[in-house]
Amino acid sequence: MTLIRREALRAGFSLGALTLLAGCDLSDHDAVQNVLARFSRWNDRVQAALFSRSRLAPTFPEVMAVKEFRYNAWYGPDKAPRLNPADYRLQLAGRIENKRPWTVEELYALPQVSQVTRHVCVEGWSMIGKWSGAPLRTFLERIGADTTARYVGFECADGYYEGIDMPTALHPQTIMAYRLSDEILPAKYGYPFKIRIPTKLGFKNPKFVTAIYVTDKQPRGYWTDRGYNWFSGI
């Protein structure tokens, strides 16, 4: 049997076959979305199992840290909330012994660590930065959070909301970042602090956090509600 010849023209059919696939895009059907959501929940479980409490995200030499970090939000930097330290109070809720709200001054007095780690966006870009702040674990212990609970949730001044699994919340590199590149976190990057989690995708790193709660019910997430995977570990 032979190949090609003038029939080679028919190779054009293969292109047609590919476009057929796109033409019958099923993504918007409820049934398809349900199947995909099921896979996503399965992926949550796989990722939770893959997550190692002791494995650290790679750290980099400080010279590799970007000074002008990429701004990323669904609104422009001028629209970012500007919180006034005089009346800012971090609210606490859920399975926490001492729910007294915290001031910026009190938060910033916690023992701090620095990390030069890589921020990985779900879209694919990545950027190395230097963040400093208190380990979230230290804070959770100070406020008497029940660390046997399953989740920690966050609410933010810009309407954002996120939540993470407790093992990630207790991970040594999960910090309340007060500083970026040694500067107090500028307003557009989330003053007074952002939750910096180098073992999660960027969107699991909420900024301008105004409330923290501890719960057994999986917290919703802004982008998770828009179809992204909940665990989103890396």
């Binding site: 993504s27 779900v122 992204y228």
Partner: peptide, 14 residues
Amino acid sequence: GDPGVASAIAWHFA
């Protein structure tokens, strides 16, 4: 409220 990137990722990860 997402331009289909979430769906694409869901397909990819399935």
